[in-house]
Design a protein around this nucleic acid. Structure first.
Length: 426
RNA sequence: GGAAAAGUGGCAGAGUGGUUGAUCGCGACGGUCUCGAAAACCGUUUUACCAGUAAUGGUAACGGGGGUUCGAAUCCCCCCUUUUCCGCCA
């Protein structure tokens, strides 16, 4: 959520920034109009409340002296009625402002390139060691999965629906190995504290991180209990500190956590439907940071490096993109996508995005810190990144490590976890 | 699922319709004393919003939301959370 005061002070900047994010700058005008109305109403109603408060004291005094206060009471009755009316109008105006703000995206950081679509994203760097150079035509991950008997999309569709893959045998073990490898690396080498969060959260949490109200149709819901299946561990982990205030010296707080992720992917039917490319349930280890605004952009760069270390260790070719304003997600002020190479698709697949949300989520979720003992609390900056999602990484991993006979070589760093070196065709 | 109790300022804990934003204590902060510290003593100590350059003034907030009343921390209704007991399940 954006800061109403800052909007009031710099309306033109905000309009331009919103427009660069391909959203409607008229929202800013609407907010400002409602804000004027709101402040007028506040002036009126608070004046009335002030008189009521003094007269009410007079009434109390008269009653104490056994004097008659009937006329004052009658007078205050009409004042109170008017107050009630104005309060209603006021809360209507405030609700409207809030509603618009909840649907208004974060504004991009100045270092974000202006652009209209994914085509305008800027490639920052590339790491190609391990690119597929073998002498045969690579199979795609679906064919490999079938050949080796490690992935079962058909039975997944039978028991749950399409987009719910089943991992079998060494496939399941490999999935588990990846998750453990990510968590161990981030906790042991990168200084994150591990969290194993609930996979289901309440509405407040979904609002706090910005999934609600705008993206309600993307969530799986548990209607009877008013709960939501999480689309990412970002939601429970960021909300751990909802309505809390950090001490400055506690920052940066760094968490990593595994969760299954549930996404309805409403409206994206027919797009990337093959195998793992777009699924309703997948596994992810998420990185979350609560940072002092002063250093938050350094923390973003560090987070990208943390993810890169994993890919380098796995010897998966990848590239880093800096997203342009038009491709930036609703919550983000700046975002890097990390894409892994799929030799069978002959393209890069998004496997991670690392974002700085600045105070956008912190304002919604009321997460603050005290710069020093005597100062007023300020909002922290929240950051998060996938470190990593297993499904698209699995695509790259299987395809890049396949051999001519259809077997798949396990990257060395994972063998300690899998306790096998190779997956043979079934 | 059933029953009971509780939810007040950083913490602890008073307060059952009228100057109560809220006694007292602890903590924190500032000061006196001291070479320094402790102790003691004095003082300060919530947040949000509105108006104002500011000093300051005003409004609101006692788990959340409604209601009664001229007036609600205090009365009524609904919800949430916590604790305890019973049942059920692991």
């Amino acid at each position: 959520m954006l800061d109403l005061k800052l909007i009031r002070e710099n309306p033109d900047t905000y309009k331009a920034k919103i427009e660069s994010k391909l959203d409607d700058p008229k929202k800013i005008d609407q907010i400002l109009e409602l804000d004027v109305r709101r402040r007028t109403l506040i002036g009126e109603v608070e004046t009335l409340k002030a008189t009521r408060n003094t007269v009410t004291n007079d009434i109390a005094q008269k009653k104490k002296n056994k004097e008659n206060a009937d006329s004052l009471i009658a007078e205050m009755k009409t004042v109170s009625d008017r107050i009630k009316e104005l309060d209603t109008e006021l809360s209507e105006a405030e609700n409207k402002i809030n509603e618009i703000l909840l649907y208004t995206p974060n504004i991009p950081h100045d270092s974000v390139p202006v652009g209209k679509s994914a085509a305008d994203n800027v490639e920052v760097r590339r790491w190609e060691t391990g690119t597929f150079t073998k002498e045969f035509k690579p199979l795609d991950h679906i064919e490999l999965g079938k050949k080796c008997g490690i992935l079962d999309f058909e039975r997944g569709a039978k028991i749950s629906g399409s987009g719910f893959p089943v991992y079998v045998g060494k496939g399941a073990a490999l999935e588990r190995a990846l998750i453990n490898f990510f968590l161990d690396t981030h906790t042991a080498n990168h200084g994150y504290k591990e969290i194993f969060p609930p996979f289901v959260v309440n509405e407040e949490s979904m609002k706090g991180t910005g999934q609600l109200p705008k993206f309600a149709e993307d969530m799986y819901t548990i209607q009877a209990d008013g709960l939501y299946l999480i689309p990412t561990a970002e939601v429970p982990i960021t909300n751990l500190h909802r309505n809390e205030t950090f001490k400055a010296e506690e920052l940066t707080v760094k968490y990593c956590g595994y969760s299954a992720c549930f996404r309805r992917e409403a409206g994206s039917y027919g797009k990337d439907t093959k195998g793992f490319l777009r699924v309703h349930q997948f596994n992810k280890v998420e990185l979350v940071k609560f940072a002092n605004p002063v250093g938050s952009y350094n923390e973003l760069e560090n987070m990208v490096n943390d993810v890169e270390n994993i890919l380098k260790a796995l010897k998966v070719p990848y590239r880093i993109l800096l997203l342009c304003t038009g491709d930036l997600s609703f919550n983000a002020a700046k975002c890097y996508d990390i894409e892994v190479w799929s030799p069978a698709e002959n393209k890069y697949l998004e496997a991670s995005s690392c974002s700085n949300f600045q105070d956008f989520q912190a304002r919604r979720a009321n997460i603050r810190f005290k710069p020093d003992a005597n100062s007023k609390p300020e909002y922290v900056h929240t950051l998060n990144g996938s470190g990593l999602a297993t499904s698209r990484l699995m695509v790259s991993l299987l395809e890049n490590n396949q051999n001519a006979d259809g077997s798949i070589t396990i990257p060395e760093v994972l063998r300690h976890y899998t306790r096998f070196d190779v997956i043979e065709p079934a």
